[in-house]
Simulated scan of single mutants.
Amino acid sequence: MTDKPIDHPGTTDAMRTRPDHGEASYQGSGRLRDRRAVITGGDSGIGRAVAVAFAREGADVLITYLDAEEDDARETVRLVEEAGRKAVAVAADLTDESRCGEVVARAVAEFGGIDLLVSNAAYQMSQDGGILDVTTEQFDRVLKTNVYAMFWLCKAAVPHLGPGSAIITTSSIQGFQPSPELLDYATSKAAIVNFTKGLAANLVDRGIRVNSVAPGPVWTPLIPATMPADQVESFGEQSPMGRAAQPAELAPLYVFLASSESSYITGEIVGVTGGSPIT
């Protein structure tokens, strides 16, 4: 990568090397026709790629974003609407339980219900000093963004999800192979793995499936916004494929897990890691 660090939370326009979200490549085939989806962190990166794919598969999409990411959110909305589907963008700090409930309520009001929840928004900040450099404030923000928000969103959404609905979380290879400089982030991703398995068992009688996508290195604004320059330059080289994934390479798996094609799959963690094992 040729990018240098950018200000957090990071925007697509600030990146010298722009990610591929599938804008020019993803072609839908009606696998999510008239489904209603909530995608957190849908303004950029994996979230945008999933929003584009879902829309081109026939779904209406509500995305959440932070205030600083408004330009990215507008572009995602444009792409969803270009696919002929309804798009709603909600600025929301998901570390606030009430805002998580409001996001779900807004989706129900806009779409008349919810069929798909993709809990994808995340926060990380690399600390070379490991635990000695992780402040309580940072630890709290990581856990509230990555774990608490997921819990609050799922709890708010479940009463609106019927049989055949799906929840998809975004975990990480970090939940299985933690990097020392991402101790708190890796801890949160391990929690997501466990939560996904437990929630799947909890909701199976309701006919709601719960699965997780566990990415390896993926080139998104979060990387140059949270990592030192030397790590940005070499990002992804540690994978067996020798490179980071593009968001567009993950979106098809979210589509699969959201569609009826995966109707007998629940409680699974599916790695997209460029060859690094997650078990």
Rank of each mutant, 00 (worst) to 15 (best):
D3R: 13
D3S: 13
K4C: 04
I6Y: 09
T11A: 01
A14T: 08
T17A: 11
P19Q: 10
D20F: 00
Q27E: 11
G28L: 04
G28N: 01
R33D: 13
R33Y: 06
R35G: 03
G41N: 03
G45R: 04
R48Y: 02
A49P: 02
A51P: 00
E70V: 12
A73H: 03
T76R: 10
V77F: 02
V77C: 15
A83S: 12
K86C: 06
A92Q: 03
D93G: 03
T95G: 12
T95N: 07
C100Q: 02
A107C: 08
E110W: 03
E110P: 05
S119D: 02
S119Y: 08
S119G: 10
N120A: 15
A121W: 04
M125A: 13
S126L: 12
Q127C: 13
D128M: 11
G130L: 09
Q138D: 10
A149E: 00
H160C: 09
H160N: 14
H160K: 14
L161G: 10
A166G: 12
I168D: 00
T170A: 13
S171V: 05
Q174Y: 02
Q174R: 07
F176M: 09
F176Y: 13
E181S: 14
A191H: 10
L199E: 01
L199T: 04
A200K: 06
A200D: 07
D205G: 09
D205N: 13
G216H: 02
M227I: 05
A229Q: 11
D230S: 10
V232Q: 13
S234L: 00
Q238H: 14
Q238W: 11
Q238N: 09
S239V: 02
A245K: 06
Q246I: 05
P247C: 11
A248E: 05
L250V: 05
Y254R: 14
V255A: 15
L257G: 04
L257Q: 03
A258N: 11
I265M: 15
G267M: 08
G267E: 00
G267W: 01
I269H: 01
V272N: 08
T273K: 04
